[in-house]
Write a protein that binds this DNA or RNA. Structure first.
Lengths: 167, 167
DNA sequence: GGTGACTTACTCGGATATGGAGTGTCCGAGTTAGTGCGG
DNA sequence: CCGCACTAACTCGGACACTCCATATCCGAGTAAGTCACC
C-alpha cells in the first residue's frame, strides 16, 4: 500500500499556484506544462493528475493561448484531504470483502447473524477516519503559509522566468 | 491506494486463533490450510500471508503432522498495527520523492535550503501517524472480545468439525 | 513390553507465473489571442 | 480608425502502451507423529 506519486505532485502544484497567484480572485492561469517544468515531471502525466483535480472542482482550467489551470476557490477552503481524494479516488483505504461470511466459518449462521458490521472493518475504518480527519484539518493555505519566505520568492522568480521564456 | 486483501485475511485468522485457542499458553497449532477453509481463501496465498506474520514474530509456526500456526504472544499484546505492518511491510503510506528539489522550482536554492523537511511530506506524515496511532490503540484481544458469543461458539464448532474431518 | 530407528505424511518456506492498477505517452477537439484585411 | 473574420498556436481531454506490485500457484526442505522390528 502506497499513496500515488500524483498526490505529491498535486499538492506541490497547488502550493505553487497559491504562491504565484497571490491574493487575486482570478490570477493568471498557469499551464500544466510549466508546472511540470517547475518540478521536472512528466508533462503529460501531470496533465492527467491535474485533470482529476479539475473534475473534482478544485481547479479551474482555461483553454487556449495564455490558458492553464488556477485554483477554483480560496486556498483556505481546499483541504489536503480534498486533494488526496481527488487524485486517489473515493475508495476507502480498507475494502472489507466480508470473508467472515464465507467458508466453513459461517456454516450454521442465522440470517441476521451478519447484520452488524464486521469488527475488523470497524477497526480499520476508525483508523481511516482519523487519517481523513487529520488530512481535512490542514488546508492548502496552511501549507503555503508554512513555507519560508525565501522559498516562496525563489519559486515566484523561477516561475516568472519560465513564463517569460516560453510564453 | 488500497490496503492489501491479506490484511483482512490476517486479522480474521488472528481472531480465529484467539477463539479456538482459548486462554492456554500454547494451544494446538492450526494449519494454514484449515484457516483457508474457514474463510474460503486461497490456501497457498494465505500461507504466504501467514509467513509474513511469522517472520514479524506475531505467529509461531510448527512443522510436521499436527503442526500449523499459533499466536506467538498474548492477544492483548498484538495490536492491529502490528498485523497491518507485518502484511503491508514497513514502508510509509506516503513516500516523499522530494520533487521540490528538482526542476526549475529549485534553481538558485542555497545548499541549506532543503534542510528542513518538506511541508507536504509533514502534512501527510501527521495524518499517517494518526492512522498508526489508532491502529496501535486496538489489540487483537479487543477485536476478539467485541464479537458476539454466538459467533465465537459457531467459529469454534466449525473449527472443531474441520479438525475432526481432515486432521 | 520397552526401545530404537524408520517410514511416512504433513507442515512450512521460498522460488515461480499471472492480472490489474498506477504510470507514462500520444494524438485529437476546442478555444482564444493575435493578425490581417476590408470598410 | 474600427470591426470582423481568419489563422494559428496553444490549451485541455480522453484513448492507447508499459511497468511494477499484489495476487495466485507450485514444488522442495524439514519435522514430528505413527509404525514396525528388534531386544
Amino acid at each position: 500500500m502506497r499513496t500515488s506519486e500524483g498526490v505529491e505532485w498535486a499538492l506541490h502544484c497547488c502550493l505553487t499556484l497559491v504562491w504565484v497567484g497571490g491574493a487575486e480572485a482570478a490570477p493568471e492561469p498557469v499551464p500544466s506544462a510549466r508546472l511540470a517544468a517547475m518540478f521536472e515531471l512528466s508533462p503529460t502525466y501531470l496533465n492527467k493528475v491535474l485533470q482529476r483535480l479539475t473534475r473534482a472542482g478544485l481547479l479551474t482550467s482555461v483553454s487556449g493561448p495564455r490558458g492553464g489551470v488556477r485554483l477554483a476557490r480560496a486556498p483556505e477552503r481546499i483541504t489536503v484531504m480534498d486533494v488526496v481524494a481527488a487524485v486517489e479516488g473515493p475508495d476507502p483505504l480498507f475494502a472489507c470483502a466480508e470473508i467472515r461470511q464465507r467458508g466453513a466459518s459461517a456454516v450454521g449462521a442465522g440470517p441476521r447473524e451478519f447484520a452488524r458490521p464486521c469488527g475488523v472493518a470497524g477497526a480499520m475504518r476508525r483508523a481511516e477516519l482519523a487519517w481523513r480527519r487529520e488530512l481535512s484539518a490542514q488546508t492548502v493555505a496552511d501549507l503555503a503559509a508554512a513555507a519560508s519566505a525565501a522559498s516562496v520568492s525563489r519559486v515566484r522568480a523561477n516561475h516568472a522566468r519560465l513564463a517569460g521564456r516560453s510564453g
